[in-house]
């Protein structure tokens, strides 16, 4: 994520990018006295959403959802960039392996100590390749984190709706009420205490089917 994207996200959240350094802080304090009301954030166009994502009107709490969508889209894109780099590393290691294989066949590389050294290089190349695959697998965190964020938004939305109803303000008809993103509504990383062991459940289910 580059600085312009971070700034855009900060802006969408209604806060300006923090000025750097003491001087900037003093300037900011001078510009906005402590007692002065906070300025209204400028309206910012909502980032593009995934199909089926929230279509909540501004001011309805929907900006939180669009921010989350923006954050997850950016992290997904950046994760893919990391994956691209890992792919490149994997390809380079593969090329190195091919070159070493060629060198090993060379008449000048038939001495035992040279062969041993080349085998060691091959072996460390394999280790690098394994670590690259491992790193790729770890990128699953992106999808899991996204779903956790969406669940948090879902709960925030419920709290928001509850407070609106409790205060009797801004109450709208069901039709007018913006719906929570279908994705968010149906999304859920299961809380740890409710997680079941998938293999046991599958086995139990299949046993039940066989009996039936």
């Amino acid at each position: 994520m580059d600085q312009s994207e971070i700034d855009a996200l900060m802006k969408a959240a209604g806060s300006k990018a923090a000025p750097k350094g003491k001087k900037a802080k003093a300037e900011a304090e001078e510009a906005v006295p402590a007692s002065a009301p906070a300025p209204e954030p400028a309206p910012v166009p909502a980032p593009a959403l995934k199909p089926g994502a929230a279509t909540v009107a501004p001011g309805e709490g929907g900006h939180v959802i669009t921010e989350i969508d923006a954050v997850t889209a950016v992290t997904e894109r950046e994760t893919n960039k990391v994956m691209d780099q890992l792919d490149v590393i994997g390809q380079l290691v593969g090329r190195q392996r091919d070159l070493i294989t060629e060198v090993m066949k060379h008449p000048g590389a038939q001495e035992a100590n040279v062969q041993e050294a080349l085998h060691k290089v091959m072996s460390s190349g394999k280790e690098i390749q394994d670590k690259v695959f491992e790193a790729m697998d770890l990128m699953q965190f992106q999808d899991i984190t996204r779903q956790k964020l969406e669940r948090i938004v879902h709960h925030l939305r419920q709290i928001h709706d509850y407070i609106v109803e409790l205060l009797g303000t801004g109450l709208k008809s069901d039709a007018e009420r913006a719906s929570v993103s279908r994705t968010i509504h149906t999304t859920g990383t299961t809380p740890d205490e409710r997680k079941a062991h998938a293999d046991s459940v599958v086995e139990e289910f299949l046993r039940g089917q066989q009996k039936g």
């Binding site: 999808d143 899991i144 779903q147 859920g188 990383t189 299961t190 409710r194 997680k195 079941a196 998938a198 459940v201 599958v202 289910f205 299949l206």
Partner: peptide, 20 residues
């Protein structure tokens, strides 16, 4: 990511052969 028992059973009932 759905790991609750009722989710796994619902998926199996819908016709999923296995679950990860």
């Amino acid at each position: 990511t759905n790991a609750a028992k009722e989710d796994i059973v619902a998926a199996l009932q819908a016709g999923v052969n296995n679950y990860v």
